[in-house]
Structures are given as structure tokens and as C-alpha cells.
Amino acid sequence: MTVNDRYKEEIWKNSGDWAVEARGLVKTFGHNRAVDGVDLNVRAGTIYGVLGPNGAGKTTTIRMLATLLRPDAGSARIFGYDVAKDPQIVRQLIGVTGQYASVDEALSATENLVIFSRLLGLGRAEAKHRTAELLEEFGLTEAAKRPLKHFSGGMRRRLDLAASLIAQPPLIFLDEPTTGLDPRTRTQMWDTIRRLVKTGSTVLLTTQYLDEADQLADRIAVIDRGQVVAEGTVDELKTSVGTSSLQLKIQNPQDIAPTREIVEQVLMVESIVSGDNAKITAPLADVDKVTDLLVALREAGIYLAEMSVQKPTLDEVFLTITGHGVKDGTSSSSEQSNKTEEAAV
């Protein structure tokens, strides 16, 4: 992977103003190496996206960087402070918004923010003032007195993010900030995250959606089975995948082998058979070549059932980089077992 190699060189050459520097982070739960040697470098003042499916190790990585989990091996520094040696200093520099709302369900929005403010050392009046300010900013003033039980998912996430901003930390971790949100709320969340960076924060966010990383992140690390499998800017990653992909479904499943042969000859790329309905997927750099391909298929007497051209999705990024797809069912169940084991550590 050339993107990856270039990235590794850059790590060692550059010792500029890094918000996050992680080397060879490892975390094992039982026999499961949830994080298996992750390197990350996040420049201060940027948005960095960690992209991967459920169970890839995104949350575990963030938890180690945020001093919530001790790495089994490797090291990480936040603004130059080691997370293992100076956790208390690191905590003064970060804000964490977890995948599952890290706010108190039994209390109201105001009570939550006041308690967090007080814990962060704000005086009584100061805490009230800051709380009101943040509630206003995140459009929660009206709901401020209601218990969180009656909050929607979007409101809860906004409150969660507000709580992370009380101390105005220079580095903010967002673990899947928009998973489960409706499109409108998602766009609002994106705007908020962009504003954060404008005020000087660094944001490290995890996501399952290439689209989200595309919208927000300056750089992306693709993570799979606990390892960074690719790293670069959004454009670099997309180029490595091909600008878009061609998907073919043929009428007669026995024609799969000859079809792939023709596809690979004409487009000069490798194709992949995915799914149980025998879909052939191939990166498509030059759309014009499709004409040649269709002619070649007709000459070979292969009949198509379906044809589409798609922009790269996370699935394609994965197929191309790792050679296997995003196995959603199995990986989400392994994520579940991660969580329970994590709780038992």
C-alpha cells in the first residue's frame, strides 16, 4: 500500500505540532486482539477521521487515547504527554464524547452540565453561566430542565458534545458522533464539529461512513481488525480505490468466471465477487471503457441482469484495501463481546 508507506515515512520525518501520536497500540480482550498495533498521527488544529466497520477497534483505540483503557503494548502521547505516565495532564487536554451518551440519564441537561462544570473546577456562579451558555449554543435551552429520559437521540448527542466542551479542551474525541441520527441532525452535528475546529480545537472522530469522513476529515485512517490498513487524505484514499466502481449482475450464474475474465481484460483491474447474489464489482477509473466492456460481454454471449456505477463506499474501500468486505453481522456481534469483556477487565 503506497499511501501507507508514504505515511510511515512522514511520521518519522515530521516532529511538528502533533495533537496525537500513537505507536503500536495493542489491546487484547481474551483471545481477541481488538487493537493490534495501531499507529496514528494527528496534527493539531485538524479533523482526523478513523474509519472502519463495527468491531474494527475504533472505540478501543479512542478509549486508550483518552486514558479510559490501559494499552497492553505501545505508547501514545497527547500534545507530547504520555497517556500512561501523565494521565491526569492528558485529561486536562481532552474532551471525550462516547458512542453511548456519556451523560447522566436520571438528571436534567442543566444538572448534568452543572455537575461536570463543578468537577472541572468552575465556581457555582461560573458553572451556571457556562451551562446556560452551552445549552443556548446547542439549542437545548427549552429542554434544559427535563430529565434526559425524554430526550431524542440527537438531543442527547448534542448535550454529550456540550459536556465535552465545558473546559474548552484543545483535543476532542468523538466516537461515532452521528451513528443513529437522522440526516438533518447529522448535518447539524457536522456543522458543530466544523465550528469547533475553527476555534482552534483538534478533533479525532471515528465513523462507519466514508461520506462522513469525506465531509469532515482532513485525513483518514482506515482501520480493520485492529490495524490501520490505509492512511491519507480523502483524495488519496479515493484514488487508491478508484473513483467509482462498476457493479454487474449476470443472468446466468455459471457465467461468473468468464465474465470476470472479460472485465479484468477490458478494464485491466481486478474484480471481486461479492454477496450471495453473485455481484461482480470492479473499480472503474475510465467510464468510457464501459462501452468496450459491454460490447465484449455481448460478443461472449453473456447476459446482464443488472448494471450500475457507484461512487466508492466504505465497502469498496474495504474490498480494495483488505480484500474482504465489511461483514456486518459477524463483526457487530464481536463488537458486542468486546464490550462485555471490556467491562469485565
Binding site: 478509549r63 483518552a66 486514558t67 479510559l68 491526569q88 495532564i89 485529561r91 486536562q92 481532552i94 474532551g95 471525550v96 462516547g98 453511548y100 451518551a101 456519556s102 451523560v103 447522566d104 440519564e105 461536570f116 468537577l119 472541572l120 459536556a163 467491562a343
Partner: peptide, 14 residues
């Protein structure tokens, strides 16, 4: 301790 809010407490400099 099993709730999400505990993660926040743990991540605060308290």
C-alpha cells in the same frame, strides 16, 4: 460504573 456517564467521570481531570 457500567453506565456511559462513568466514562466521562474517568476522562475528567478529577
Amino acid at each position: 460504573m457500567d453506565k456511559g456517564v462513568f466514562d466521562r467521570f474517568k476522562s475528567l481531570p478529577i
